[in-house]
Design a protein around this nucleic acid. Structure first.
Ligand code: MN
Ligand code: MN
Ligand code: ZN
Ligand code: ZN
Lengths: 139, 139
DNA sequence: GCTGAATTGCAACAAAGTTGCATCTACTAT
DNA sequence: ATAGTAGATGCAACTTTGTTGCAATTCAGC
């Protein structure tokens, strides 16, 4: 069992949640990854090491998100992308989306704010900021 | 023929593009609307007055977007929403998305900026800012 | 009115995600 | 250690949103 797998298992157990092999494998994979990755990429990556139904993957990802182990981002190709949370209390941060290769990264440094007032009766709860452009590979 | 329909037809003709009844009906509908509306809502709205295949609707919406008559926004429910452009040269602006009823409005007033630097080699081309919360109806 | 290119309708397809239900498994209580 | 149970998983079927190929129709210029 790899270090990341042990770490993933420990994270889940410490929160009093049920430890299953799918959860551990998926979270470990996400912990290793710098980018935000799609359902499809995760499936591909785990194919050889771990048998996993795609519905289970959807359900585990939703569960990881609900439990704040990961967060997800939607982008222009209409697919969710997932990334392990680096902070226990995830802070709002911006994302970068490459318009050519669709890579998504988190801009953890970038605090997101806005000041202008909303129309009467509207309340803000979250802010999402996406910078689009070309990544280092695609420039 | 309503005023908006005349206006829509005139907008298309003045740009030297082919005027078709689908384009006129759809653009007129969008000109009347304050919110950003989905494919589905447009279809529903035009059902009684104008026979229209859903593929044609997709194609006309894409065409209207390409020609800058409208712009589109993707939101958490993974459906594109369309709104007629109020300025001829559309400026970047933020959007508000209601987390309960999924309504999307344009925050035309809100200029979008960001300052923090990107990772080395990354280039920014557009910025998208979405404020999420509760709309006036859902508060 | 005729003509050619652009637009439309229809059927089939595709990607991404969801639902229902039977089976299996991780944790708890004994 | 064993058994019971709530929760997790696998599988098949389904849904939603959007796309593609192609033949038939329509628009704009002559
Ligand atoms: Mn992120
Ligand atoms: Mn807008
Ligand atoms: Zn790229
Ligand atoms: Zn609302």
């Amino acid at each position: 069992m790899s270090n990341l797998q042990k770490q993933a298992e420990e994270m889940i157990r410490r929160r009093g949640e049920r430890v299953t092999s799918s959860r551990v494998q998926i979270l470990a994979m996400l912990l290793a990854e710098q980018r935000a990755v799609t359902h499809h990429e995760i499936e591909e990556r785990l194919r050889n090491t771990h048998r996993l139904d795609r519905v289970t993957l959807y359900r585990v990802l939703e569960w990881l998100n609900d439990k704040c182990f990961v967060h997800k981002v939607v982008s222009d190709d209409r697919a969710w992308r997932f990334r392990a949370n680096t902070h226990i209390y995830p802070h709002q941060h911006a994302h970068f989306e490459c318009m050519r290769c669709t890579t998504v990264i988190c801009l953890d440094e970038m605090k997101v704010e806005y000041d202008r007032p909303l129309p009467a009766g509207y309340r803000s709860q979250e802010i999402e900021l996406t910078v689009k452009g070309l990544c280092a590979e695609c420039t």
